[in-house]
């Protein structure tokens, strides 16, 4: 089951000296529902994902996932929280090219294990099959862009995350792969009732989400539950 999100009085800045770049007074996302964050380039979409996923710590405010305020956690605990509760997708896929598709999917298992558990390996194969990667031992660097993002999706889903963060997941893809990847993302979050936090500047994708939030210069322009 996905986690709920409650954000209040959030302020985040690039460093301790600068003015807050992101300001977000109030935001709620229901468990298992999806939120699309949109806005022009540089409006702070990615920054918001970094803050919501606990990679960045806000200057003030709370980010509560299922009642747990991740802003109060130390760095190691936030790492562990992401490891156990979150999946991540990026515009640039961020695969490790010399590794095979399968090895990329299993990479997160190396964070706290010497060898992946057999159930992780079988889930990795199953996920790769589900996203349509037929050659799991092919080097990631030789995959097409659409296949790369589908491999990245399999990696994000490996540990059955309760939240999926997707930062412009289709922006680097051609139209056909774009809709294929979008379909797979929505299929996955519906199938495993994962809460989805997605940024996009594409209207088609934005409108598929349950809720929309529009940013400009780090501030909310419009948004809330539809």
């Amino acid at each position: 089951m996905g986690l709920s999100l409650r954000v209040s009085h959030l302020q985040w800045a690039f460093d301790t000296r600068s003015e807050p770049f992101l300001v977000l007074d109030e935001l709620s996302v229901a468990p298992g529902s999806s939120l699309a964050i949109s806005g022009p380039s540089g409006s702070g979409k990615s920054s918001l994902v970094f803050v919501l996923s606990g990679m960045e710590r806000p200057r003030s405010g709370t980010v509560a996932w299922g009642g747990q305020d991740v802003t109060t956690l130390g760095e190691a605990a936030r790492d562990a929280w992401r490891r156990h509760h979150a999946g991540l997708l990026f515009q640039d896929f961020h695969l490790v090219p010399p590794l095979s598709a399968l090895e990329n999917v299993l990479l997160p298992t190396t964070f706290d294990r010497w060898r992946p558990r057999s159930e992780d390996v079988s889930r990795a194969y199953e996920l790769l099959d589900r996203v349509g990667i037929r050659k799991p031992h092919q080097r990631a660097g030789t995959l097409s862009r659409g296949e790369m993002q589908r491999t990245a999706l399999a990696r994000a889903l490996l540990f059955r995350p309760q939240v999926l963060f997707a930062d412009e997941p289709t922006a680097s893809l051609d139209e056909a792969s774009e809709s294929a990847v979008a379909d797979l993302v929505f299929e996955a979050v519906e199938h495993e009732s994962i809460t989805l936090i997605m940024t996009t500047h594409q209207a088609r994708l934005r409108d598929r989400a349950d809720a929309q939030l529009e940013l400009s210069h780090g501030r909310v322009v419009s948004g809330g539950l539809r």
Partner: peptide, 12 residues
């Protein structure tokens, strides 16, 4: 790559 892994939940 290491930064990416930090994003995915790898520790320092």
């Amino acid at each position: 790559w290491l930064g990416l892994l930090r994003g995915l939940g790898a520790s320092r």
